[in-house]
Design a protein around this nucleic acid. Structure first.
Lengths: 235, 235
DNA sequence: AAGTGGTCTAGACCACTTC
DNA sequence: AAGTGGTCTAGACCACTTT
C-alpha cells in the first residue's frame, strides 16, 4: 500500500475537478456510489472527501450531495513578522510617553495613561529601510518589559502573561505621512508618505495589549501574499 | 444530542489549550485514553482531534502522541478583491498597447507583443479613491475578452479558458510613484506616491495569464488582515 | 514488548432532501 | 419511500517510537 486508499480516491476526484470533468456547481458521485466503485467502506470515502473539503474544492450538502465549489480569489495569505526580513535592527530608544490619539484609542488607554514605547531602525546593506515603533500600555505594578522589547518578536512578549494561544493580531496596511521623528530617523524629507503596517495584538477577551507600527521605505521592498482556491466562508 | 460528541470533546480540549492547561509542546492524552475517558470509540476521538489539527492548535506525531503547537504570528489572512469594496467602478478605456517593462516581464511578453489594457476608476461618495488597470497578453486568434473586462472579477475572466480551479494569484503590496495618466485620472499632483496592489494571475502551469494593478489613494482607506493561531507550514 | 497514531471495515441510526 | 450526508461503534492490522 504505497499511497493510502483515501488519498488515491481524493487524488482521482481532485484531478476530475481540476481538469473540468466535474465543473463548479456539479455534484460528485455520492458516498455510497464511490464506496461501491472503489470497493471500500463509506468511512474511507468520507475521509477522502474530507480532504477535498478542507482544500475548499468541494462542499457537502446534507441530504443532497457533494458539490464542486466555484473558486474564490479574495482570500490571501500574507507572511509578515518582526524578523521576517533580512537586515539588522538597530535599537534607538525606550521611553514612556502619552501616544498620539490614534494609538491611544487603539490601546483603549485611559485619560493621561502612558505607554511604553520602543523604537528601532531596520538597516539593510548599510541603508535604513524601515522604522519600527511598539506601544505597550503602562500600568503601575505590572512587571516592566521594556528590556526585552527589542529582543523578541512582538507577540512573544505577552506569552508569559497570557495563555499563548489566546493572542491574535489585527493588521492594517496603508499609507501615511510619517511624523517628524520618523522622517528624521530615516533621513527623509519631512511629511513624506510611507507604507505603514500596523499590528494590534489582543488577548482572548479582545483587550488590546500592544500595538506595533512599522514605517517602510521604498527600499524595504514590497509585501507579498498568495491566494489558492479558498472557498471557506466561515467568517 | 444537541452537540455532537466529537465537538464536545474538541471543545473541551480547545478550552484546555487556550487556558494554558495544556501548554505548547505539551502532549495531549492519547486517543485510547480519551476514548476511555469519554466512553466512546477511537474513531470519534480521532475526529475531534482532527478539528483541533485543522485549527493549527495541535499536531500528531506518529508513535508518540498529539502535541500542542506554539502559535505563529507571522501568517495573516487578507481579503481583497475587485468588488470587495464599497463604491462604484467607472469604466475609462480599453486599449491595446505595449506595457511598461515591469508589467511586460511579469506577463512574460515576447518582444513587441502587446497587451489588452482596461482602465477603471473607483468612486465612492462622489470621490475618486482608486485607479484600476488590468493587463492581458494579446494573442492573435484568441477570442478577445475586452468586452467583459470591466464586468467580472478579474480571475473569473479566465475561467472559461482554463479549468476554473487551476488559477492562483500572487499579490504584492507596495508604494509607487504613480505614472502621469494615473495621477491625472485621480486629480492628483504628478508623481505622487500611492499605495499599489498588484495581482498576478497564473494558470496551473504557472504561466501568467493576467496582471492587475490598483492604485489606492488615502481616501480608499487601509487594507486589513488578521492572524489567528496558524501553525501549518505546508508552504 | 508496549504504547502511540494511521488506515480501514461492515455495519448502525439519524436528519435532511426529493419524489 | 428512497437517497443523501452526519454521527457513531467495536473491532482489526499496520507503522512508528520508546523502554
Amino acid at each position: 500500500m504505497a499511497e493510502p486508499l483515501y488519498l488515491q480516491i481524493s487524488g482521482r476526484l481532485r484531478q476530475g475537478i481540476l481538469t473540468g470533468e466535474y465543473k463548479p456547481e456539479d455534484m460528485l458521485p455520492s458516498e455510497n456510489e464511490l464506496a461501491a466503485r472503489y470497493s471500500t467502506s463509506r468511512v474511507t470515502v468520507r475521509k477522502s472527501l474530507g480532504v477535498l473539503e478542507s482544500e475548499g474544492l468541494v462542499r457537502p450538502w446534507h441530504g443532497k450531495g457533494y458539490f464542486v465549489q466555484p473558486p474564490k480569489y479574495t482570500m490571501f495569505t500574507l507572511y509578515f513578522g518582526d524578523d521576517a526580513t533580512d537586515g539588522r535592527f538597530r535599537f534607538q530608544e525606550v521611553t514612556i510617553l502619552r501616544p498620539e490619539k490614534d494609538v491611544a484609542e487603539k490601546l483603549l488607554l485611559k485619560k493621561h495613561q502612558m505607554a511604553i514605547v520602543t523604537r528601532r531602525i531596520l538597516e539593510r546593506d548599510d541603508r535604513v529601510v524601515a522604522y519600527d515603533e511598539k506601544f505597550v500600555p503602562y500600568e503601575r505594578g505590572v512587571p516592566s518589559i521594556e528590556f526585552e522589547l527589542h529582543f523578541t518578536e512582538f507577540p512573544h512578549m505577552f506569552e508569559e502573561r497570557f495563555a499563548p494561544m489566546s493572542l491574535h493580531t489585527e493588521m492594517t496596511i496603508g499609507m501615511e505621512t510619517a511624523p517628524e521623528h520618523v522622517c528624521a530617523a530615516l533621513s527623509l524629507a519631512a511629511d513624506k508618505p510611507l507604507l505603514v503596517v500596523g499590528r494590534l495584538i489582543r488577548a482572548s477577551d479582545d483587550k488590546p495589549v500592544g500595538f506595533a507600527k512599522q514605517y517602510l521605505t521604498e527600499a524595504f521592498g514590497k509585501l507579498s501574499a498568495r491566494s489558492g482556491y479558498y472557498t471557506q466562508e466561515k467568517l
